[in-house]
Computed example of a mutant assay.
Amino acid sequence: MQQDAIIIGGGFAGLSAAYILARARRKVTIIDSGEPRNRFAAHSHGALALDGKSGREILAEARTQLATYPTVTFVEGEADSAEGVIDDFHVRIAGQKPIAARRLLLASGMEDRLPDIPGLEERWGKTVLHCPYCHGYEIGGGPIGVLATHPMSAHQASVVADWGDVTLFTNGMPEPDDAALALLERRQVGLQAGLVSAIETGAGKMMRICLANGRDFEVRALFVGPDMHIRGSIAENFGCALEETPAGKIIATDVSKATSVAGIYAAGDIARAFGNITLASADGVMAGLGAHQSLMFAAAHS
């Protein structure tokens, strides 16, 4: 049976889009691998009325509520490939029959790729963080590090300075230009040159930033801007236009979250330069509205 829409990704953007389409009584299939981007963080913050809840808890409740809509189907797995054109898309999942739909909504999110530094990955989402608005308050002030990974790292460090005493570790990146240096000085951010060789456990709740030159520094948390990579190859295979950001490429969309390919929409971190769960959810709502109105007006003119 052909669906009105297939949503690839059951995170905050995908489920929010599904709500819109389900409440319009449209047949929706959500394909989800069960690995949301924020799975490494124990708690979510900054989301209205949900402060402190885990992302998995919020998503589980959303799935439970969505399951009460008779036109919604959940499929567990990874969407391997997709083909087709508007009104006739087909998505394949390993070991299952292809699913057909009139519209395709990409919400599979991003893969965060961290610098290859011993001790960094296992602390990701705990004391190695990416967003001060999400996790900065809980640090409680004190010494905080920012690891330079891209040209906007100096700006990131200047923002994080509102949450503690910040040191920017350049880690082999070019030294900030004069304007960035002036900003760091104005924000009272320290600058530490040299390669970071390891992240280790320090005294108490501190962690130690070890430099290749033998120096080390203790901080309560380390902020990192990871390289972001679009999960999966479906957008690339369809030829969806991409947009460059300082942290990686995202899928380009218009205000209705339509991509450059007719009938394909994208929402959430996969189509935003900056994201959190609130923004991802709002993006999903816009994509759901865009996809529904596309279906509605197509029916009106058929």
Rank of each mutant, 00 (worst) to 15 (best):
V219L: 01
L59G: 03
M1F: 13
P70D: 09
S153N: 10
R113E: 09
F169Y: 05
A179V: 15
F297T: 12
G55N: 07
N38L: 04
G232S: 08
A300E: 14
A180S: 13
G14H: 00
G190T: 08
N237W: 09
R220D: 07
S294M: 15
R103G: 01
L147T: 04
A101R: 04
D178Q: 09
F169A: 01
E218K: 08
D283M: 12
A107V: 00
K249F: 06
S158F: 05
L50F: 04
K205E: 12
A67L: 13
R220Q: 11
A13E: 02
L120D: 06
L191W: 01
D88C: 08
A62C: 06
V285W: 15
T68L: 15
P174H: 09
A67H: 05
A298C: 15
E185Q: 09
Q188Y: 12
W163N: 06
N237M: 08
I264N: 11
L168K: 06
P118W: 10
Q65Y: 00
M152D: 12
E236V: 08
L168D: 04
T127I: 01
F223G: 00
T73L: 12
A22H: 02
G172F: 04
A273C: 14
R25W: 15
V219I: 07
V146E: 07
G109R: 04
L168A: 01
D283W: 08
D177E: 14
R272Y: 04
M286L: 15
R25G: 08
E35T: 10
Q3M: 13
A180D: 12
L147I: 03
M286Y: 13
A67M: 12
G52Y: 05
G119P: 05
L129H: 01
